[in-house]
Amino acid sequence: MIKLGATASSLAITLFGLVVVTFFIGRVIPIDPVIAILGDHARPELVDRLRAELALDQPLTTQFWLYLGKLVQGDLGRSVMTSNPVLDDIRLYFPATVELGTTAMILSTLIGVPLGVISAVRRNSRIDQVARVVSLFGHSLPIPVLGLVSLLLFYAWLGWSPGTGRLGVAYVGLIPAVTGFLTVDALIAGDLEVFWDALAHLILPAAVLAYFSMAYISRMTRAFMIEALSGEYVITARAKGLSAARVIWRHAFGNIAVRLVTVLALTYAGLLEGAVVTEMIFSWPGIGQYLTVSLMNADMNAVIGATLVVGSVYMVMNMLADIVYRVLDPRV
């Protein structure tokens, strides 16, 4: 119980720190937020009016307490870019990122972990070489190139994948938004046609993202496994005459699971932060694109709001990893 309380308070402190840093960075950048909103053509009287409306004419500390006061009431302010409350925007864009990131995470874990294990077990075999080349590519290819080339190959040439966006033109707006995950919403609405279209749009960008995380996951798994397989307990297990599969999966893999969970959790958190470039190439309206466009527009309410979401995601993932440790490792 004490531990939980401590976790909660450290979470609150970290979030507060995040708000402070983001808020003050937003105020010291050499861009006048009023001009960012109104553009170069605004007349002085309008500029003054908006400056007062946004309380930008107040001292910095006053501005901060005003913002904080609203924040604790759950009011993140309004985005000037979309003219919606920031919270509504996050509700709209974050599910798109979660849907994409989760799909990518599932793909990369399902492929990356077994690939890493096999590479480690069959070290320096042909399959290991292939796996290493594949993951090296994943690490070194810039994502714009991979994204554009995959779009060219699977969309333009082979026609296996639909184009960019989350849905085909004909399906936009057909099903009510419940969760914000289009595939889930389509199933809730019982509309299989929309479901398949949403899924088809999801696969290519998810695969591009997954390739990168898969490369990382498989390399880490391989390294952990090689170390584990040379452990004395593994030799003991082998000497006892246990089957190869049991030695690998139960004894060696069981021991690396805790470390692997950290890798997976942070990879997942990274994916949920929104992959700006992938989102751009695939016209995916996710949180990464939202954050970047807001930043470019000096739309600070939106930036702080989205940063808080990303920060919270990291913290929640860390906490989840902590909990999983306890399940996997009785000593913790």
Binding site: V169, I281, S283
Partner: peptide, 8 residues
């Protein structure tokens, strides 16, 4: 449709 990338 918002398509940020000209090639796309």
């Amino acid at each position: 449709r918002h398509v940020p990338d000209p090639s796309a």
